[in-house]
Every structure is written in structure tokens, then in C-alpha cells.
Simulated scan of single mutants.
Amino acid sequence: MTIENHYSPTEIAQHIAQEVIAPLAAKIDREQRFPSEAFDALGKSGLLGLLVPKEFGGLGGSLSDLSAVTQVMGQACGSTSMCFLMHSVATMVIASRAQTAQQQEYLRSIAQGEKIGTLAFSERGTGAHFYSPEITANFQGDHIVLNGKKSFVTNGDHADFLVVVTNASSPDIGLDMLLVETASPGVQFTGSWDGIGLRGNNSIAVEFTDVKVPLHHVIGKEGDGLDLIFQVVAPTFILGIAGMNVGLAKGAYHAALDHAKARKYADGRALCEIQAIQFYLAEMHGSVESASLFVQNAARAADAGEEAAILSVMQSKIQASEQAIKVTNLAMQVCGGQGYTSALPVERYLRDARAGAVMAPTTEVLKEWVGKSVADLPLF
């Protein structure tokens, strides 16, 4: 499938999900490996350039497109959706604020499926407060020398470049974001991802030892880091992860519905004819629909630049994460013993869905921010 065929991004994603992503989802989960086949297909289709402006050869997609695509992928495979999302967030940072030379170098390669990116924000000592990095960045002539370690780097050593958040040259200036090539001397990935869910997202640590980053690899102006986090990274990531969680909930609901219709008792009745099961199915359907609509509306508001969009964006992750946990638990109840085994994908959806609430910004942090915002209190 090619861009020239005039398919929408969601239609491209649906095709790849059906042909490549879904058939390999259980294998990716079982083997805990990066979804290379999916990324090959995404690169060839042009979908890795979803958020690359058309002037650089990309699809010029919106946040609405991103949340719709991550939903499609999430329904097929949570790990693939997560990997694609982090690549897309890194792409959005470059597209939004990078210098023209950086955009020419990176965005065209991304659009052609030649480069995979990701964020390197989290640190062991700062946890969800990734906007307070401990990594050191020393300015030396025309280079910045990085030393330190980042945790939970999705895509890990399959990424070609990292968007790294660091302190600027002085505390008064704030934070910087840097483009770092993973092939640079001193960059080393360590460990392996052994989470209970999203087992193919290759979220591992990266260590920087005297890594020299050219000054022209600072994204935007020095000190733009915090603004980039809240104006670009946060809405892109939140809406993408919200879409993914809606997809996980939708996948679990359809798996449970199919099982309830196919499972027959000795007297010929189907499982779905039991009233309690009908209640569960109705509750799951309503939860999936409400979360999906909430995320769609939040993304549209963000794309339109509405003043109150930020509240809807933050709430979208809260709603989608909580509904995904609820729906996958109900799906387990519907499917019973079969759902508890790998015979059905329900247990994988349940494990994958649990990640959304603890992924920064966590549900608790977002609720605090929303609460402060509606009460006209400062966030920090």
C-alpha cells in the first residue's frame, strides 16, 4: 500500500494491522521482541512519516490521525502501538521546533522509513518527574558532552536517534532537548525489558559516557525544553497513548464478545444468552464507546487550538486508561478460564492495558493537574 493510493492514515493502519501486526501480536508478546516486521511495513507504507509535514515528504497528519492510528494498532498489538507512538512523538518534536537543517536531515529520512526515533526522558532517580533531569550536559566549545543514564527508552537499540531532555547551560535558562544519534561513540543500551505487558516495546536503559553532541543538535533555542515538553510532547504522547488504550479496550471487548457468542453449553445455549454476561457486554460496549468519543473530541479540540483543549487532552488519558483497565477485567470475567490462558488474547490485553495508568504522566499526576487547573491553581 502506498501513499499515492490516497488512503487515509487510518485506512493504511487498518490494512497493516490486519495483514502484519495482528497475526504476529501473540508471538511478539511471547518472545518479548521488537515488532520489526510491523516497522518494515509501516516504513514502506509511509506511515512512519505520519506527523512529518508534506513539504518533507510525510503524510502531514494531525493529532486526531495519531490517536486514531494508535487505536487501530492497539487493538491489534499494544507493543507495536507503543513503539509507533514513541517514534511519532520524537518526530513531532523535530517537526514542531527543530532548525530547518535538522528537519531536512531527519524528517525526510523518517518519511522514507529510513529512521526510527524515540524519547529518552525518564531517569531512575526522577521517576514520573522527567522534567527534572539529573543527567549532566556540559557545554564545551561547539559540543555538549552528555554523561548519565536514561531509563524506559521505548524502541531502545532499534532507534536511530533519541530526543534527550537535559539541563541547559545554566539553571536560569531551564531545559534543553537534544538530538542524539544512537550510533554516536559513548552511547550504550543496557538491560532488557521484562514487563508484565507491552512485552515487545524494547523499553531499555541507555547510558551516555562522554557523548559529544553538536550544538546545532539542540532542538529550538536553548532553554526551550520545558516548553517543548508541555506544548508538544505532552499533548502528542497523551492523545496517542489514550488512543492506544481505547484500542486495547476495544480488542478485549471484541474478543470477549466473540467468545460469548461461540461458547455453547450442553443444552445448546450460548454464553451470551446468560443475563449476567449480557450486562458485562453492555458495560464494556458503553465504556469503549465513551472512551473513544472522549479521545476523538479531545484530539479535535487540540487540532483546532481551542483554549480549553488542554483539559480535555489530560482527561483523555485518564478516561482511556481507566476504561481500558475496567474493560479488560470485565472481558476476563466473561471469558472465565479460557480468558485466563493464552488460548484467547484477553490476558494479553489485560496485561498491556495496565501500563497506561502508571506511564508518565501517571493518572494521579494528571488528576492533580486537572484539579489544579479547574481550581485556577498553579501546576507547580
Rank of each mutant, 00 (worst) to 15 (best):
Y7A: 12
A13W: 06
H15E: 05
I16D: 14
A17S: 15
Q18P: 05
V20E: 12
L24E: 15
A25Y: 05
E37A: 15
L42K: 01
S45C: 05
P53G: 09
K54G: 00
S64W: 06
L66Q: 02
S67T: 15
S67Q: 15
S67F: 11
M73L: 15
Q75W: 04
A76D: 09
T80L: 01
T80R: 00
S81D: 05
M86G: 03
S88V: 13
A90K: 01
A90M: 01
Q99R: 14
Q103W: 01
Y106R: 05
K115Y: 10
G117L: 10
A120K: 07
T126R: 14
S132C: 07
S132T: 14
S132P: 00
N138W: 05
D142W: 00
N147R: 12
G148T: 14
G148L: 10
F152H: 13
D157N: 15
L162V: 10
N167M: 06
A168P: 06
S169Q: 08
D172W: 06
D172S: 13
T182C: 10
S184D: 11
G186H: 03
V187M: 00
F189I: 09
G195N: 02
I196G: 13
I204R: 13
A205C: 14
T209A: 14
D210F: 03
P214F: 09
I219P: 04
E222L: 11
I229Y: 12
V232Q: 00
P235S: 08
I238M: 11
I241L: 09
A242F: 04
A242Y: 04
A242M: 03
G243F: 14
V246S: 03
V246H: 03
G247K: 05
H254S: 08
A256H: 01
L257H: 07
A260E: 00
R263Y: 15
D267H: 11
D267R: 04
R269I: 09
A270H: 06
L271M: 10
L271T: 08
I274G: 07
Q278A: 11
Q278L: 04
F279G: 00
Y280C: 13
Y280I: 10
E283Y: 00
M284S: 06
G286V: 04
A291S: 09
S292Y: 07
V295M: 02
V295W: 03
N297T: 14
A304H: 10
A304C: 10
A309N: 03
V313N: 02
S316I: 00
K317S: 12
A320K: 01
A320L: 04
E322P: 00
A324C: 07
T328C: 06
M332Q: 09
Q338P: 01
T341K: 03
S342T: 13
P345F: 10
R348A: 13
R348M: 15
R351S: 13
A353N: 05
A357H: 05
P361T: 11
T362H: 07
G371N: 06
S373N: 11
P378T: 10
F380L: 10
